[in-house]
Design a protein around this nucleic acid. Sequence first.
DNA 1: ACATTAATAATGTATAGACATAAAAGGGAG
DNA 2: CTCCCTTTTATGTCTATACATTATTAATGT
Lengths: 243, 243
Amino acid sequence: MTLAETGPAPLHQRIRADIEGLILSGTLRPGERIPVEHELMARYGCARMTVNKALSALADAGLIERRKRAGSFVSSPKIHIAALAIPDIQAEIVGRGMTYGMELLHRALLPAAEVAADRMVLKRGGRALLLRCRHLADGAPFALEERLINLAAVPEAEGVDFSTVPPGSWLLSHVPWTEAEHRIAAIQAGADGAALGLAESAACLLLDRRTWRQTPTGPAPVTAVRQLFPGAMFDLVARFSGG
Amino acid sequence: MTLAETGPAPLHQRIRADIEGLILSGTLRPGERIPVEHELMARYGCARMTVNKALSALADAGLIERRKRAGSFVSSPKIHIAALAIPDIQAEIVGRGMTYGMELLHRALLPAAEVAADRMVLKRGGRALLLRCRHLADGAPFALEERLINLAAVPEAEGVDFSTVPPGSWLLSHVPWTEAEHRIAAIQAGADGAALGLAESAACLLLDRRTWRQTPTGPAPVTAVRQLFPGAMFDLVARFSGG
DNA sequence: ACATTAATAATGTATAGACATAAAAGGGAG
DNA sequence: CTCCCTTTTATGTCTATACATTATTAATGT
């Protein structure tokens, strides 16, 4: 068995790939019409459902728009660039081929009154767990994290030993979240610079994320994180896509 | 016709929505098994193809994983957060309800030798257009942009009057691109701060983007941009998704 | 006991046909 | 000419069936 042995792709995937190729290569330009289903049926010698599956997938992916009676048309590139926001710093570091380490700097239980309303809105009498930790990649500071966990939504968190388990990784695998709000900003390191080995004036990336989970009585806040990254750059490759 | 009149959704969408709801609400947790197709057929009183379409869509969306002989399982949340990188600053500003303005600060034709290889690799004898401009929102500086356009890939660009048309908007509507590479970083404003009305030490967001277009002889560079945003924050809301 | 082989249960792909739905195009009445 | 109605075309959904693929489980033969 050689590596080149990919095997033949299913027909609907081939049709999809063919058309995708035509669009990405510029042969079919935005606004142009794609052959109607019956034509593709004839061209590939298959049933309409097969063609339909391919075109539906392209439509789902946002590459084409389908209009009844009119046909299918290449959509103009609406760019939803993928990905930033690192949900799991441990996974990110390991994925970069470095060894991960963490230090728990601070841990406290806060009554609702002490939690800033702009970070998380808790019910009266609720409590939150405040964690402050430092992530290390190959021993060097990678990020500083301050996190609030709503103990009403995630009571199990109180018993977890977060001195070895990164809170983000633990939450990701234990709590389903349904909505998140992100903010990204550039700020000067200030007093936090020391923990990252930076000057106070050094520019940092600040990632602010709050997540909610769906409950019968509406969305309940799960966690709020603020992560500070030193000068680090995030590279991301995006492909043309309208989804 | 009232707004509430949504009409009944197609069955496969309803099935999909039902299961998605179970997952997002936490009733079905990551790793748990989803009823097999025959069970769903019975429950909804429909054909297997219909159930299959719903489950395939969920799998495409990354909410579930399907294994032959074993069944379908809720996947653990792999987060591909949507969107950052502002492809069209004009659209972004207008979308925020502000008035857009721009100033072309500099325009030059560069021979290939003068283009830094880390920004764009040009063929011998090729030329690039260098543009430097400032974007304004409601009259205030919004971003500083330095852009290179490969004239071999986009010869028409040489004749365009970029003193009124933002280069990003023009390129987006005239050149199909197929691949882009992004970088994001936080840096201190330095000498550029003045043009943005900032101190030299102020932290800025730097967005670096390079795009290619597919050609018969392989991908050809189209443009390389470097955009500097003052303290601005980008907000984005993401939903649970694995796509 | 162990390796090999067969049965089985689940998903994956595909077909041919049916009816529904939407929008464009055309035709006629006023 | 304009408005309204009908026709036509293309997509949207769904069914019932068939066979392919794959991994597990069970059976079998040494």
